[in-house]
Simulated scan of single mutants.
Amino acid sequence: MSKLPTIHSRQLIAETRLFRVEQLQLEFSNGQQRQYERLLGGERGSVLIVPMLDDDTVLLIREYSVGSNDYQLGLPKGRMEAGEDPLQAANREIREEIGYAARDLRLIKTFTIAPAYIRHQTHVILARNLYPDKQSGDEPEPIEVVPWELSKWDELIAQADLSEARSIAALYLTRDLLGSVDANPSRL
């Protein structure tokens, strides 16, 4: 099963300001043919930033989420702009959303979201050694910044408004990474 299917045709079948839907006609190595549809994410992807104010304090945000029609607690995030690499995009996003920049930015992991039908990558960036540097962004209202101590992990995960899987996964990775660094400082 390691041979990728042959793509016989691909067609854009729907497009909005945010989403594009592509239809593909595929042939698998065993001769089976299928038609698939997938959502196309931005060509450049997005970033999800874990901004650490100090060794224990992460800066979360609470902002309106139209998909769930409520305010959600999570990590700063945004799409990558033309010409930006993930670290540049991460530093821009935290300037716009939390009013800080970082002297130390590090890629932790690249996530996909439902890769069976969405083509999109999210780069998870650890941001440390923060300093104040507010820049204006495209948010329709001010974003609430919520400092939270990772040492109060159980309370954080219990928050009803912390439900985005990417933020939860990134926080788990960061907690484990920073915990292993405490035990072995050469890990970071």
Rank of each mutant, 00 (worst) to 15 (best):
E97W: 12
S151H: 13
Q33I: 07
H120L: 07
E149G: 15
R38I: 06
T110Y: 09
R62L: 00
P185R: 05
P86V: 00
D55L: 11
A170E: 00
A89P: 04
L188Y: 03
Q35C: 14
A14L: 09
H120I: 02
L48Q: 02
V145F: 04
L53T: 02
E27Q: 13
G42V: 02
W153E: 05
P142F: 07
R175K: 12
V146H: 06
K109S: 07
P76T: 02
L48D: 00
G179K: 09
A101C: 08
E22P: 10
K3G: 06
L12H: 04
L40D: 01
A165L: 07
D138P: 09
A165I: 12
D176E: 13
L48R: 04
L12T: 04
Y36I: 13
V50Q: 00
G74F: 00
D104I: 14
G179T: 11
E22N: 08
E15A: 09
R119E: 01
G45Q: 01
T57F: 08
A158T: 10
R103M: 03
L60A: 02
G137I: 06
A158K: 12
A82Y: 10
K152G: 06
Q159D: 05
D70F: 08
M80W: 00
D55Q: 14
L188A: 07
M1R: 13
L150R: 04
I108M: 12
G41C: 06
A89H: 02
V146T: 01
G74P: 05
Q25E: 14
L24A: 10
D133P: 10
N30R: 12
A90W: 02
H120W: 06
A116S: 15
Q35D: 10
I113N: 09
L73V: 11
I7R: 12
V145R: 05
L39C: 08
I49S: 01
A116K: 12
D104R: 15
E84G: 09
G99A: 08
L75P: 03
D182S: 11
F111H: 08
P51T: 03
R38Q: 10
L126A: 01
S68R: 12
P142S: 12
T6E: 13
N69T: 12
I113S: 15
R95E: 04
V124A: 13
G99F: 11
R103W: 03
K152W: 04
I108W: 01
T174F: 06
A116I: 03
A170Q: 01
N184A: 10
A160N: 11
R103A: 13
K152M: 07
Q11T: 11
R128N: 05
R166Y: 05
D85E: 07
R128I: 05
V124I: 15
G78T: 01
P51Y: 00
S167T: 05
P140H: 08
P142A: 13
M1W: 11
R34I: 10
H8R: 09
G137Y: 12
L59V: 09
G83I: 06
R175C: 04
E149Q: 15
N184W: 06
Q32F: 07
L87T: 02
Q32L: 14
S65E: 06
D85V: 07
E37K: 13
Y117N: 14
L26D: 11
M52V: 02
E155Q: 15
A169M: 14
A165C: 07
R128F: 00
T112D: 05
E15F: 02
M80K: 04
E81K: 15
